[in-house]
Design a protein around this nucleic acid. Sequence first.
DNA 1: CAATCTACTGTCAGTCCATGACTTATGACA
DNA 2: TGTCATAAGTCATGGACTGACAGTAGATTG
Lengths: 218, 218
Amino acid sequence: MTYGTLCHKGFEGVTTVGLRERKKEKTRLAIFDAALDLFLEQGYESTTVEQIAGAVEISPRTFFRYFTGKDHLVLLFHDQAEELMLEVLAGLPPDEPPFACLMRALRAVLADVRAAAPEHADRFMKLRRLLDEHPRLFGQSVARGAETERHLAEAIAARRGVDPDRDQLTHLIVGFAMSTMRVGFECSRQDGTMEEVQERMAESIALAERSLRPGWDL
Amino acid sequence: MTYGTLCHKGFEGVTTVGLRERKKEKTRLAIFDAALDLFLEQGYESTTVEQIAGAVEISPRTFFRYFTGKDHLVLLFHDQAEELMLEVLAGLPPDEPPFACLMRALRAVLADVRAAAPEHADRFMKLRRLLDEHPRLFGQSVARGAETERHLAEAIAARRGVDPDRDQLTHLIVGFAMSTMRVGFECSRQDGTMEEVQERMAESIALAERSLRPGWDL
DNA sequence: CAATCTACTGTCAGTCCATGACTTATGACA
DNA sequence: TGTCATAAGTCATGGACTGACAGTAGATTG
């Protein structure tokens, strides 16, 4: 599930989704927003779970029922992006070259953020700034990316009809794709708008495709 | 400084290095070895700093004077590998293509481990197994790799005469290089010898070079 | 060799993250 | 409405880390 699809489901099923579930989602986002703002204000390390919980008026214990830990907050988007990428991948024709598939999936993630409510795009950009300002968080983001990389590698291996435990090329394809993605996401001073991110990502993808030999990933 | 160079310095300066410093290095390695064995035996999470300290007969407080934290143990090699790669990079002729430079630096790291005392190669392989068995640790390793990636990007940017904050290609080059490196390191069942690692790394490098357009990184 | 300086080590107290066990509150639903 | 399931709060605990202070042992100098 992603922000985009969440919105969609919101339209078609708002009445069937119980009060309970709606309340939960509201709390989850409230925690996320409060935490993001606190992190940006006073830094990640110096923000305690107690503070975050206090800001949303829940007990610290409850915080851990919504997020596995402080780290997890920063990885909310990663969870959703991974899920969406795998969905997109599953829906693409089997003869589409692997790297092109991954680039499609990547573009789908950005499109999904834009398709969602504007406040979601704001969260996305805030998170981006946060990652840019705190190398430690960026590291966590990359670590989470490594997990995604494994899952994508399985999907790509299946698609290529090879054993993911043996085929190095599969991992290279996914690794290159993730690198392309990270390069596109990097801030380094500039930009604050979603458009600019999409633009830079397009640049990065173009650069990667220009760098690779045609048919290298077959 | 690396294991290889450490050994070298050992020969030429063992008398000039004070007892104090030698003792410190011995303690550092003792901690490292004890921790690695404990991690492999009973897992990373379920090994406490107290246990590690106990095994080496130091106080838990002292542990933190040698390593910044439990995580840091797993990243000892990363520190040394990064340092060596930057050194190698600095010594290469300016007209050597960037990606080739990075592959050279990468090979130098492996050569350095092999050149060092056999127990260092053992540590290297143990660590490799540990990372393979614990996804969480692998994540930390990748996160540390992201830091190295930044440093390498600066070196490559200087070498290419571009601003590292603006030039996407520089980051792509380094990203692709790191991906190639990770693919070569991956275990996935097989091997236990240093030779096999070197072999797989060579495969991975060959695969990468075959995938990239000639002159893509200029 | 002795006195002194310096830096490593241990002890102690305290903070924060995280989790398990148990109790209370609240939405779901017959 | 009353019962049930699940969410939220409370309490207690353990483990990672840090700062402050004291003791100890290698280094240095005369």
